[in-house]
Amino acid sequence: MYASTAKQILSEGITYPGERYYANNGSGEYVQLMSHYAGATMWQTCAQVCTDGCGSTQSPTHQSTTTMGNKINADIHPYIVLPMNHNSNIKIGDLGVVIDTVTDRSVYVIYAENGPSGRIGEMSVAVFNKLGLGYRNANGTFYGYNEKRFITIMFPGSGKRYGYNVYNNVPTPSELITNAIIETQNFLNTRDNMPPIQ
Results as ranks from 00 to 15, higher is better:
39 G>I: 06
39 G>F: 01
39 G>L: 03
41 T>P: 03
41 T>C: 12
41 T>Y: 06
42 M>E: 03
42 M>G: 00
42 M>D: 01
42 M>Q: 00
42 M>H: 02
43 W>I: 02
43 W>D: 11
43 W>V: 02
43 W>K: 01
43 W>N: 10
43 W>C: 04
43 W>M: 12
44 Q>Y: 10
44 Q>K: 15
44 Q>P: 07
45 T>N: 10
45 T>A: 13
45 T>M: 05
45 T>G: 12
46 C>E: 02
46 C>F: 02
46 C>R: 04
47 A>F: 13
47 A>M: 15
47 A>T: 10
47 A>N: 11
47 A>H: 11
47 A>I: 09
47 A>W: 03
48 Q>G: 10
48 Q>M: 11
48 Q>H: 08
48 Q>C: 09
48 Q>K: 13
48 Q>Y: 09
49 V>K: 07
49 V>W: 01
49 V>G: 07
49 V>S: 07
49 V>N: 05
50 C>A: 14
50 C>W: 00
50 C>N: 14
50 C>D: 15
50 C>H: 03
51 T>E: 10
51 T>Y: 10
51 T>A: 10
51 T>P: 08
51 T>F: 08
51 T>D: 13
51 T>L: 08
52 D>Y: 03
52 D>C: 15
52 D>N: 15
53 G>W: 04
53 G>S: 04
53 G>I: 01
53 G>E: 02
54 C>R: 14
54 C>K: 13
54 C>N: 15
54 C>M: 12
54 C>P: 00
55 G>P: 02
55 G>A: 09
55 G>T: 07
56 S>A: 13
56 S>M: 08
56 S>W: 01
56 S>H: 07
57 T>Q: 08
57 T>C: 06
57 T>L: 11
57 T>W: 00
57 T>A: 05
57 T>R: 11
57 T>K: 11
57 T>H: 09
58 Q>C: 09
58 Q>R: 15
59 S>M: 01
60 P>S: 12
60 P>H: 05
60 P>A: 07
60 P>T: 01
60 P>W: 05
60 P>C: 05
61 T>F: 06
61 T>A: 14
62 H>M: 01
62 H>Y: 09
62 H>S: 07
62 H>N: 00
62 H>D: 00
62 H>Q: 05
63 Q>D: 12
63 Q>F: 11
63 Q>S: 14
63 Q>V: 14
63 Q>Y: 14
64 S>L: 08
65 T>P: 01
65 T>Q: 07
65 T>W: 07
65 T>K: 04
65 T>N: 09
66 T>S: 05
66 T>N: 00
66 T>L: 00
66 T>P: 05
67 T>P: 03
67 T>Y: 12
67 T>Q: 13
67 T>G: 07
68 M>K: 13
68 M>R: 14
68 M>H: 14
68 M>P: 02
68 M>L: 14
68 M>Y: 13
69 G>W: 06
69 G>P: 04
69 G>Y: 02
69 G>F: 02
70 N>S: 13
70 N>V: 01
70 N>Y: 05
